[in-house]
């Protein structure tokens, strides 16, 4: 039983990171209907920015996260403006291929600039271990940090999207771009804001990921990015609560599969769940089925 609780706790902390990435993913998907494959690479660049801020300029944790967010936001908006915006009117296939291109470009650009080696992410804040049940179940302060940051940011995002003017604009644009622009909403700006918020979330997730695993490398973003997309699909793409729930669910499933079965079967298992969900309920666990319109 204690092992089970431990696995769930590990799953929740990994799931928090997935949820954080998935929130950005799902926002971008919701507004432009594009799987932004480069999302994981935006995360990677943000993490490296934080890494350099800490190692070269002795930045503290909060400053490092802010720098990471700034780097990711600039990159995310640049990608949107350069690679995706010219294609807004073309086929979705073309945009998706461009997204793959952007992802490959950043991955290999990262390999070129940062080198292929794994680097140790500095343990900039102390990691304490809290033990329960006679030491059989433990929670680290990193895990608590990750969970609380994700929770706060998800609530913040929900507030921004539901209560602010910018959020209202986002929802309008995701519903109908043309109608939104007729209502006086600047569609381009709104899309850029969405990319900026999504990228900032990715940066935070990246720093937490680097801190949690104590490592960073240029390909670090791809798999978590892909997993986060799965999480978003799992919960219902385009929905903030869906991405949140999907992330946690995915993290817990991964932890249980690695804990009770074998970590080598983790990825095939997760992808099998993805395909199953897509077949059974493509709109996701929290999504509503929409009728196809001609």
């Amino acid at each position: 039983m204690t092992e089970f609780i431990q696995q769930i706790l590990n799953g929740i902390s990994l799931g928090s990171i997935y949820a954080l990435i998935a929130l950005g993913y799902t926002m971008v998907y919701g507004i432009v209907q594009l799987i932004n494959f480069a999302h994981g690479e935006i995360l990677m660049v943000g993490t490296f920015a934080a890494f350099f801020a800490i190692t070269a300029y002795n930045a503290n944790f909060v400053l490092a996260i802010l720098i990471a967010m700034a780097a990711s936001v600039i990159l995310g908006v640049l990608i949107e403006r350069i690679a995706y915006k010219p294609l807004r009117k073309s086929s979705r296939l073309a945009v998706l291929i461009t997204a793959i291109g952007a992802s490959l470009l950043l991955q290999n650009g990262g390999l070129l600039v940062f080198g292929a080696d794994f680097q140790a992410f500095p343990r900039i804040i102390q990691n304490h271990q809290f033990k329960f049940f006679g030491g059989e179940v433990s929670v680290t302060s990193y895990q608590l940090l990750i969970f609380s940051v994700t929770l706060v940011m998800a609530i913040f995002l929900q507030y921004v999207v539901m209560k602010t003017k910018a959020g209202k604009a986002m929802r309008a644009v995701s519903w109908d771009k043309d109608a939104a622009s007729l209502m006086g909403i600047n569609v381009d700006t709104t899309i850029s804001i969405t990319f900026a918020i999504g990228s900032a979330f990715a940066a935070v997730a990246g720093v937490l990921l680097g801190l949690y695993y104590n490592t960073l490398y240029p390909l670090m973003g791809f798999m978590p990015g892909l997993k986060a997309f799965i999480a978003a699909v799992l919960g219902g793409i385009g929905l903030i609560p869906g991405a949140f729930a999907g992330g946690f669910l995915l993290g817990i499933v991964e932890a249980l599969v690695s804990g009770y079965w074998s970590s080598a079967w983790r990825d095939p298992f997760v992808f099998a769940i993805l395909i199953l969900i897509l077949i059974v309920k493509p709109s996701g666990l929290l999504g509503k089925d929409e009728r196809e319109k001609v």
Binding site: A83, P86, I97, T98, I100, G101, L105
Partner: peptide, 10 residues
């Protein structure tokens, strides 16, 4: 390759 892919798409 990746840059070409993006440029070709655009």
């Amino acid at each position: 390759y990746a840059s070409l892919l993006i440029i070709v798409m655009i």
